[in-house]
Amino acid sequence: MRRTLAWLLFLLVAPVWATPGPDRLIQVGQTSAPPPLDPGDPAWTSAPAATVRLYPQITAPGGPGGSVLMLEARVLRSGGRLAIRLAWPDAGEDVADARATHRFADAAAVEFAPAGDTLPYVGMGEPGRPVQVWLWRAGQPPERLSAQGFGSLAGQAGAPPEAQARRSATGWTLVLRGKTDAPVPAAIAFAAWDGAEDGRAGRKRLSAWQALAGPGGTIPAALREEARLGGDPARGERLYTERGCVACHAPSAGLGPDLAQAGGIHWPGYLRRSIREPAAFRVPGYTSIMPKLGLQRLEIEDLAAYLMTRGQ
């Protein structure tokens, strides 16, 4: 009874939903003309710039290490076509070289989540929840791909996106333009590879899913439950310690994914699902050993709230 009362009280004082961070929402600019392919086209000023953090991949072996990279993203939509302009720092230009066997090209990708109220696992999707990917590798034609988990990336029928990249002394500006599977993807995520650090496969930096803003510049209704952030991070942190989560979820333990960046690359909804039903989706490369913790609903909220503070 007391618990029910506490829950009701919580519902009254907690906001219906709160964004997990300022970097999870991208305002889509609309143009009447076809969206430009040229990164320098003045039309890009009509698309608000979103600053997105790209985290070094730490879930699968072979990540690049190093620090977070800030990427600027702008999205324009017109006539069923989506154009995405990405700008990110990259100190040296590494372009595909048909006479080199040991070098890798700089690259960037955009990942699209299918419409729906549950976002796929941000790292290459998951079985049953496929993602679409546009991949650009410097010096090569862009590719249209899809994936349902690590190692499952495969070519996808249909016209590949067009790409135009511009190199400055300090980085790349890239526009990818094409038609996505879903006319309005629920969310997009980004990744960048640095050829200078042998970037390829999981040796990359990646972002969390970014919702494409709906009317009024807010999180689309379908994703509000994914974004909802209640709970008390301090209580969550105590739970995290009491339940010994760190025994597995640490790089040295290697038994569960390292959660040091959990709040930076995951959404609250994903974290709640993973705590509630650990076996429902297992991150590839890890055995399914996480027990159901038998937590109360509020405790799950607290734990998710705590994890969302990590890596932000």
Binding site: A96, D97, R200
Partner: peptide, 19 residues
């Protein structure tokens, strides 16, 4: 997809990347 982890892993270096 040309990631070349195999090239690095083969101690005999008998996998070749076709650039």
């Amino acid at each position: 997809r040309g990631y070349r982890y195999c090239v690095a892993a083969c101690p005999y270096k008998k996998i070749y990347f076709n650039p």
